[in-house]
Write a protein that binds this DNA or RNA. Structure first.
Lengths: 167, 167
DNA sequence: AAGCTTCCCTACCCTTTTCGTAGGAATTCG
DNA sequence: CGAATTCCTACGAAAAGGGTAGGGAAGCTT
């Protein structure tokens, strides 16, 4: 067991961020996608496999259940299964189930904003940004990731070495 | 399913968010872009024009000065000017000056992450997402917005009516 | 029915971030 | 000098982020 360095505490501030919740949720869903057809998977098994705090994960799985993404079963043979095939669940579905809207500006969704003066064209910019984020996250399914085959338009973006550098 | 109570204004949860700081910063910069060549603009004038709390804005302008985006002048004829022409300052420049990295996952930038099992291809997805956000925010300059002419590839995204709907 | 086991629900806790406000020091102009 | 304006530090309330704890409800298995 490699002692994974969990560096935290230093204020790494970034505004467009994927939270731990969302990251954990997607990873859990990916495990479920890999176990399709088999027995339901227990929260603790998922937590162990992906190194996610298991009580925290329980809450996340619950959100996904409320969002209709997974179905649960209690009791000794209980656990979680995907509610639909992994090919029909997008990453956007998962993120939205545990976090709400994908993109917001000052706490509201872009269409609710009102700008004046030279900032008027700022609104279409935020809308375009959101559309682009949606395009990516809605265009990738759990099955895609589990199979290691991202859609071409995503794969192409990730191929660019510049995409991997931190400026 | 009970819809979560959503207070207006703040308290809305979304993970890829443009903070008030970033939004204010861009709007202030746009005003400065519109006043290029004229006298330096005072923080209070910007605050009034864009309805931004003026002491809060002062701090934001200061961050932009430290980031080399604006230059300031003290005293009775003081104020702020852009350090470079608005056509040479991107929205990404502004956002980064006041908030740091554009995208992070669980507090770190994507290349620092390590995934295992079926989540392995999650990393290229986050990287692609970041590349796309960068592409948009780095591809639009203050002058573009102030002139109301977004680049074609952004304009096209904003044209789609679906981009304006909240699912 | 008893007893596990597992999900489900509520409440709490601590730290960091967010969005500001307040007051004053430093600088520049007239 | 004196007024205006930027610059700096500190403080503060509220929310979000990331968990923990404990127990209730439901479903097997025997």
């Amino acid at each position: 067991m490699a002692p994974r360095a969990r560096l935290r505490g230093l204020g790494d501030n970034a505004r467009m961020r994927i939270s731990a919740r969302a990251d954990y949720a997607v990873r859990a869903a990916l495990l479920l996608a890999g176990a399709e057809g088999a027995e339901p998977m227990k929260a603790e098994a998922i937590a162990d496999a992906q190194e996610i705090p298991h009580k925290f994960l329980e809450g996340i799985l619950n959100d996904m259940r409320r969002g209709g993404l997974v179905v649960s079963q209690r009791g000794i043979r209980g656990g979680y299964r995907l509610a639909r095939p992994g090919a029909e669940i997008s990453v956007a579905d998962v993120v939205r189930a545990v976090e709400g809207p994908l993109v917001s500006v000052r706490g509201v969704r872009p269409p609710e904003l009102a700008y004046s003066g030279p900032a008027e064209s700022l609104l279409p910019l935020w809308v375009a940004l959101r559309a682009n984020v949606r395009h990516i996250l809605e265009g990738v399914s759990l099955a895609d990731i589990a199979a290691g085959r991202l859609p071409d338009f995503v794969h192409a973006l990730a191929q660019d070495p510049a995409a991997w550098s931190n400026p």
